[in-house]
Every structure is written in structure tokens, then in C-alpha cells.
Design a protein around this nucleic acid. Structure first.
Lengths: 155, 155
DNA sequence: TATTGTTATACTCTATAACTATA
DNA sequence: TATAGTTATAGAGTATAACAATA
């Protein structure tokens, strides 16, 4: 019984193809944790958790309701209350009651939040540059495309 | 004054090169968080935190001392005590005093730990396959290489 | 009735500081 | 003295359940 994914190829080809795919997925897993470690370190240098770092990244060009932000982050709305409360206490974000729907609360970044987000972005580029620098511009563009095609906004 | 990174290229080339690099880094950041979300979800389906998931991944083919494992994870040794205590309580790992150095404690996975790690790996491959499937085998191999070259074992 | 957000509660994750046992 | 690990403590992150206000 021949695998159906690539019908005109032999079983051996399919085995090799499957091996290439699991190798990629495993490498991708490794890479994810390494990159995550780098982000965690950068965040910590600015006294931010990884989640707070994401909040800054998301709110950079958006004003969202609590529930929407929770959705972006994949977290429960109750978690957001604490999260945003702490970010607000630090002066990075602010909340206002929505005027149309008085149940809703809008969250947005303050100037201080934007400043910090910019510093963080600068550091991120600084940290990853030595790695991406090993690739030439064409490889970089191709890899960027691949990322957008595969991991661009799932969830 | 011409940038020195690629001396025989024009300023405009360098600008474009820099743009390609920041675009890549930004896409890589996006991708990291998306992938992390996927890992978090998979872990949660098995009642594991991301950190516990990593512990299983690391101990899969290694027996380590507490301090070594802390180093792999980038965490303080005091954090490990609690982390491993909870994993041990769940029967996923076990600890034994090292016989040579009686201060040290070796950690290793139990059979139940290995079984769970296998299930998790299966799920990971299942979740990421639809994404990596969009690439042909050659692209997959090339991307795997790129990952290993750039994000393979930093820290 | 349903939805938006907050609060109470409980647990995990994390680091710092102080400690015990061994080297 | 220095190192390996644990414990006490405190704070952040997280979800579930119960709640108040609004739709």
C-alpha cells in the first residue's frame, strides 16, 4: 500500500520526504525555544515578562478591548485584568471605558509604553542580527517569505 | 560615508539589505510567538506547562544533575527544585543522589515520562505538519539547515 | 438572558536569600 | 571555603468560578 501524498513517487521517496519533514519540525522546535530564550532575556533586561513584551508588541499599532487582547494572547479575560493592571501601574498602558458599549474597556499604550517598545525592538534586532547576518539578502527574503507563509498568524 | 559591511555595494544596496534583515527578524519574532503558542497549547492538552514540556524534551536522551538542567533551561537552581518536585510527584521523572559526589542529585525520566514525551512529540509533528507540508522536500532540507546554522544551540 | 470585565481563589513559575550537607 | 541542592518567601502569570454592570 503506497502512501498517497505524492502518488507518482516511490515509497522510499516518501520515507525520505517524511524524514525531511520531521527533521524540519524538530529543528523548528529547537529554534523556537532558543529564540524564546532570547526574547525572555531581552524582556527581563527591561523588567518585562514575555507576556508583557507581547502586550507591548500587540498594542503598538492597535487599540483593543480587553477581550480582544485576551484573544490575541490566547489567555483568559480574567488573566488580562491582572496583567493590564500591572502594566498600567507601570505607566505603560492605560484603560478607558468604551463610550458606545459601556461594558467594554479599551486598552492602549501610553507614550512611555511606546518608548519602551521601541527600545525593546532595537534590542531584538541587535540580538538577532548576528544570526541573520550569516545569510545573504536573497536568503533573508526567501526565509521571510517562508515564515509569513507558514507561521504568519495562525491561532 | 559608505557602510562597510558590503564594501563593493552601493548605499542603496545596503539600505535594502538592512531592510531585508529587519523584515526577517520581525517575521522571525512573529513566528516565534505563534510557534510558542502552538507548543503551549499542546503542552496544556497534556497538563504540562511549557517549562515541563522542555524538561521532558531535554531529559529524553540525557541524565543530568539539577544544576546542569537548570543551566539548560536558563533557570535558577532553586526554581528547579520545585519544578522537578512537581514532575516527580506526577511520576514523570525521578531523582537519585549521585554516588561519586554526594552533594549532587541526578534527574532522569521514568518510563511514564518517556511515554508522555513520545505522545507530545507525536502531537507536535501533527500540529506543525500542515505548515511544513507547504514546502517541498528540498525547501524543507534547506530550511532545516538554516535553523541549525542560526538558531541551533545558542545560549 | 447574554456579554464584558473584575474579583476571589488556587496553583504554577520564577528569583533572592538563607540554610544544610558535602567537597 | 566553595559548591550542590533545598527551603522560605514574595511576586508574576494563569485558569475557574462567581459576581456586577450593561446590552
Amino acid at each position: 500500500m503506497t502512501s498517497s501524498r505524492h502518488p507518482q513517487h516511490s515509497d522510499r521517496d516518501n520515507d525520505e520526504s517524511a524524514a525531511a519533514q520531521t527533521a524540519l519540525i524538530d529543528a523548528l522546535g529547537q529554534g523556537t525555544f532558543v529564540a524564546m530564550g532570547a526574547f525572555t532575556r531581552i524582556a527581563a533586561e527591561h523588567d518585562l515578562s514575555l507576556t508583557q513584551l507581547r502586550v507591548l508588541g500587540i498594542l503598538r499599532d492597535r487599540r483593543l478591548r480587553m477581550a480582544q487582547l485576551a484573544d490575541y494572547l490566547g489567555l483568559d479575560k480574567s488573566t488580562l485584568s491582572g496583567l493590564i493592571e500591572r502594566a498600567e501601574r507601570r505607566g505603560l498602558v492605560a484603560r478607558t471605558r468604551n463610550t458606545e458599549d459601556k461594558r467594554a474597556v479599551d486598552v492602549f499604550m501610553t507614550d512611555a509604553g511606546h518608548e519602551l517598545a521601541e527600545k525593546v525592538q532595537h534590542d531584538v534586532r541587535l540580538v538577532f542580527a548576528p544570526l541573520t547576518d550569516r545569510l545573504d539578502a536573497m536568503q533573508q527574503r526567501s526565509l521571510t517569505e517562508t515564515f509569513r507563509d507558514t507561521l504568519g498568524r495562525e491561532r
